[in-house]
Each structure stands twice: as C-alpha cells, then as structure tokens.
Amino acid sequence: MIASIPQSRAFPRTYLAYVTVFFVFLMAPLLVVAVFSLNDSLFPSLPWQGFTLDWFLADTPERTGLFHDKRIMASIGVSLIVASCVAVLSVLLAISNAFLFERQSFRGKSLLYSLMLVPLVIPGVILGISVLAFGSNVANGLEDNYGIDLEFLRPGLTMVILGQFSFISTICTLVISARLRKFDIQLEEAALNLGASRFDVFRTITLPWLRPAIIGSVIVAFLMSFENFNTTLVLVGSDAPLTITMFDRMREGSTPVLNAVSLLLMVASGGLALLSIFVQRKQPGRG
C-alpha cells in the first residue's frame, strides 16, 4: 500500500484475508482434480482410499488407466496434430501481418487493422457455425456444378484447423506486432549500409529480435488450440480432439481417468506456460 496514506489498523488484515480467500478460490478446483487422479477409488470423490497410480497405468478389467485408454490416447494424438497446424499457420500469418501493419503505410490501413481485430469479439460458436456453413456451401456448389467432391470442406480436421486459426491468428498478430514495434529500425539501416542484402538483414537482425515473440505466440496458439471447445464442437468430424472426447466422457459420468487426463494436461500446459514466460524474460532490450 502507498505508505503515506492514513488507514485503519484492521484494513490491511481484512485485505490480506480477502486476497488469500481469492487465491484459495482460484486454486481449489484444480487442486481437487489433481488429487483425485491419485485416489485408489472407482469414483473421484471422498473419502480418500490411499495413493495409487492405477488411473494412469492400470490395464485390468475393472480399471483402464489413461495410458491404456485407446480412445483418449487417440484423441490426444488428434489434438496434437490440430494444435501444431494451427500454431504454424497462425504464426506465419501473424508475422506477415506484423510487417504489414508496422512497416507499411497504405490507404485504408486503420480500417484493415480494425477488421483484423474483429474475430476477437465474435463468440467462438459463431465463428464455428459460419465456417461450417460456408465450407458446406462451397463444397455443395462444387459438387452440384462440377462433380468435384472436396472432402476437406465437410466437418473434419481441416475445418477444425481453419476455424481455430480464424481467431488464434489475431492474438498472435497482436503479440508479434507489439515486439516489432519496439525494434530500432536504425539497426536494419546500419546493416544495409554495411552492404548486407535485405534477406540477410531479415535473417540475422530482424528475425532474432522477433524470436521471443514468435516462440511465445507459437506456445500460446498451441495451448489455445489444444483447449478450444466451442469452435471445435460444430466443425468436428469423426476424429475427435481431446476436449470433445473428454466432454462426451464427462456426460457419461465421471471416472478418475478424467482426472488423470486433466492432471496430465495441467502439467503439460503449465510446463509450456513457464517455458513461454522464460523465453519472454530472456528477450534482450525488453522494456
């Protein structure tokens, strides 16, 4: 607190208590999910029956652990593929957009910038249904008029990737643009004066400067794609990503396997998040 301001003695204590309660509130759901994945019981609920790794490793008629659950393992694979594609596509578009908005000047730039931001305020479900409807329309048109059947425009992984890409790329654009804005253009000019080619300058000066932001947005895009549900639900075909499989399971009734997947997700995404923070920290000339 700002030290010079008079305040009653009870205030800091109440305040601290509030902050503590808040963080308990924040952590409680995650904590119970993690704890019950290690409970030796058929249901994720109290009482505590003792520690076990069965829900990860077991392969008995009664208990199928996470690593032997074929459907869940397959959907983790699907999610990994989708998330990688979305991350690569989003970051490529984001780099191009960053150079467009930070380095070029042209008529209609601010309008285009606003349009680029629009996907941020469109609910995910609407992005999903609009991409679905448009894809089907194009596919039907091609089939009726030319007899061409473009399978990828029907619900399926390509559509899931496109749907997620439509809003994740905007977030990546914001991250990479912010970094490019802080770049000192004189560095490039100096290199050009010293005889470097445009490509060399980009490769040896500009790209290394952008690297932390690029790695950071790859991670953000990957995680956002991995956990996306709303856009994915309408566009999904026969191969279900993890969130969809988990949702179906959850409606059937919960088993500790779901807790095990959740713990795995927490550890993996927590690790990636820490990595992204570490990368951002290390970036030179931050401020």
């Binding site: 995650l30 549900f229 919960s254 927490m266």
Partner: peptide, 10 residues
C-alpha cells in the same frame, strides 16, 4: 493455461 473443461470438472 488449463483447459476450461478441466476447471469446470474441478
């Protein structure tokens, strides 16, 4: 950083 599904499940 954790999926909304996991949070809700919690």
């Amino acid at each position: 950083w954790v999926s909304e599904l996991v949070r809700t499940y919690g």
